[in-house]
Design a protein around this nucleic acid. Structure first.
Lengths: 140, 140
DNA sequence: CAGCATCTTTACGTTTACGTAAACTTACAC
DNA sequence: GTGTAAGTTTACGTAAACGTAAAGATGCTG
């Protein structure tokens, strides 16, 4: 079976972040490792959380946003109707933002492809000129 | 035909950013409006640039990154082989990052859907309990 | 038990991307 | 001419997300 606890360094090297960052996330209320003495011990739950935090960052989520989502999520079982409605609203909001991102990505991909083509043909052009120069030199 | 020049306020309201931001982008070397007197005049080229800047931001690009891409792009015609290779490398890098983002988005979408379902059923549960409470009160 | 590696807390520093305020011109509107 | 609305420059302030340095606790290792 897979590991159940992790040191801060385990997580730092697995996800390629600094220990400073991981402690900072705890400071901001996004992670709650237990302690053995004064050393932090992370559960696989904590590990999942960290993964989510980092993925959120890659998608432009602030730490505050991720924290809010975590909190809403944690309160889902036993939450009041009002809390659930807030969660639903947040989910809808995020879904729409993701749609927008998908659009952005699709457009940028097209443009990158076109840029790549233009770049390639510019390089091809340079190579041809080079060849021509060589042939002229041989013709001497 | 479509407009060819724009005031700073035109762009600000069209793209929903502050004039401060637009001037800041110029300060950082991403925009180069002409002047009429001391007032900035933006071309439709500038407008496209701004749109690209903002889309870049939504995808997590820093202003410095966007600037670098613009500069590489602008140097494409007449660029040296080394510059073209750098551009090609950047393009490849960005394309890979976009693939990663697509993965991230796909996973997050799945999780949001699942969260939404759980949220909905929690709300449904609350409604049922409410109904039950009402019926018991009627039974009195 | 001395040393070193790894953990910890505390705290000040840094970068990015603007916000905000002050003080100043221009350009119409009345 | 006089607001006043929109533009300008200059400059200091700020929030987020850490970086970095200092100084001490802890645990193995030879």
């Amino acid at each position: 079976m897979s590991k159940t606890t992790f040191s801060i360094r385990d997580l730092a090297s697995e996800f390629d972040v600094t220990t400073r960052s991981i402690r900072f996330y705890e400071d901001q209320g996004l992670l709650f490792p237990t302690r053995k003495g004064q050393t932090r011990i992370y559960s696989s739950q904590d590990r999942v959380r960290l993964k989510l935090i980092l993925r959120g960052k890659r998608l432009g989520f602030s730490l505050a946003e991720s924290k809010e989502l975590f909190e809403l999520w944690d309160q889902t079982p036993g939450g009041s109707m009002k809390q659930l409605e807030r969660l639903q609203a947040k989910i809808t909001e995020k879904k729409q933002a993701l749609e927008q991102q998908l659009n952005d990505i699709a457009m940028l991909q097209i443009e990158l492809d076109s840029a790549e083509a233009r770049c390639q043909s510019a390089m091809q052009e340079l190579l041809l000129q080079e060849q021509k120069a060589l042939q002229e030199q041989n013709a001497k």
